[in-house]
């Protein structure tokens, strides 16, 4: 028991935080019952929290990426400020505009409203990972074809939200597109183009899948 405790401490003092080693630490203490072990229990409990800067590994666009963050660092800030992945944009930073939309575990989420440490172990997809360098994903191509952007700042978020929508519902109706894209705001007002782009992308993808 005590040797396990020691190894947990080592892991943390080295800041070599990884989900696996940390979870191993978290398991300690749960089995400790009865009198005389309160101190150990308290010790183990300390091991279960992380604070200050820690190194985590994020699975970003299919590649493991090591990054140092604090627990309070949002996924968006980790992507933009630490991993040089600046496609997702920081606008409202309160989960209401959609410019930071990324796909985590197959679902569209607001990167500003998720902690980076909470994204450990999940597949994170950003606009950078949609298509190989120099090529356009069908959704991006449909945005170009339909003039679905003006200033373009909201576009990466819109494209990721569109992709998540089409992954889930390959042939959406106009109403389903409107509801499915409700979490993204464009202040230039390109919604007409976006609506057309999503419907065209659905056709393009349907064609390529058939």
């Amino acid at each position: 028991m005590s040797s396990q405790n020691d190894s947990t401490k080592d892991n943390l003092t080295k800041s070599a935080f990884s989900r696996r080693s940390w979870l191993r630490g978290a398991g300690i203490g749960t089995g400790v019952v009865g009198a005389g072990v309160l101190e150990q229990e308290a010790d183990a409990q300390q091991a279960k929290v992380m604070s200050g800067e820690v190194e985590i590994s994020l699975n970003l666009n299919g590649r493991p990426r090591s990054v140092k963050v604090e627990p309070r660092t949002t996924l968006l800030d980790a992507l933009r400020n630490r991993l040089d992945t600046t496609g997702a944009k920081r606008v409202c930073d309160r989960g209401t505009c959609g410019a930071c939309t990324v796909i985590v575990g197959g679902k569209a989420v607001y990167g500003c409203t998720m902690l980076a440490v909470d994204a450990v172990g999940k597949n994170i997809q950003t606009i950078e990972g949609l298509a190989p360098e120099g090529q356009l994903h069908p959704v991006s191509q449909a945005f170009v074809n339909n003039d679905a952007q003006q200033c373009g700042y909201c576009t990466p978020g819109f494209v990721m939200a569109s992709k998540a929508l089409l992954d889930r519902n390959p042939n959406p109706t106009v109403e389903q597109v409107e509801k499915g894209m409700a979490g993204n705001i464009c202040r230039c007002g390109t919604y007409v183009g976006v609506r057309k782009a999503v419907l065209e992308a659905a056709k393009m993808r349907g064609g390529s899948n058939a």
Partner: peptide, 10 residues
């Protein structure tokens, strides 16, 4: 946001 300790119990 103020810094905080983070726990992720199972």
């Amino acid at each position: 946001m103020q810094a905080f300790e983070y726990g992720n119990p199972t």
